[in-house]
Computed example of a mutant assay.
Amino acid sequence: MLVAVDHVQLAAPPGSENRMRDFYVGALGMTEVPKPPSLAANGGCWFRAGDVQVHVGAEADFRPSRKAHPGLRVRGIDAYAARLAARGAPVTWDG
């Protein structure tokens, strides 16, 4: 029986770890989680906020997806949207 999602795996181009940190830590307020040494050499970063984990792997032939995304639930959505906009990540509201 499934009880929860352990983490979401996303992809990014190699060498973009500092941009990942700026967004996931700086804008979203997550904490970086050290990757196991056996995986750290592959690049990418892991992040956590409470029970939510996002793993972003470096992918040599990375191509951004037009629709794939993690759906993150937050408290205080208006304040969170303002935080994102202040960090250069404007929010587009979708009904």
Rank of each mutant, 00 (worst) to 15 (best):
M1C: 13
L2N: 13
L2T: 13
V3P: 08
A4Q: 15
H7K: 05
Q9I: 09
L10D: 04
A11S: 14
A11W: 06
A12Q: 07
S16Y: 04
S16M: 09
E17D: 14
R19K: 12
R19A: 13
M20T: 01
M20R: 06
R21M: 05
D22P: 02
D22H: 06
F23Y: 14
F23E: 12
V25C: 13
G26M: 00
G29H: 00
G29W: 03
M30Q: 06
M30V: 07
T31Y: 11
V33L: 05
V33W: 02
P36E: 08
L39M: 13
A41C: 11
G43S: 08
G44R: 01
C45E: 12
W46I: 09
W46H: 07
G50T: 08
D51S: 12
V52C: 07
H55Y: 04
E59S: 12
A60W: 03
D61H: 04
F62W: 15
R63P: 03
R66V: 06
A68S: 14
G71F: 00
R75D: 13
I77H: 02
I77E: 11
A79W: 00
A81Q: 05
A82Q: 08
L84I: 02
A85E: 00
A85S: 14
A89V: 09
T92V: 14
W93V: 09
G95C: 10
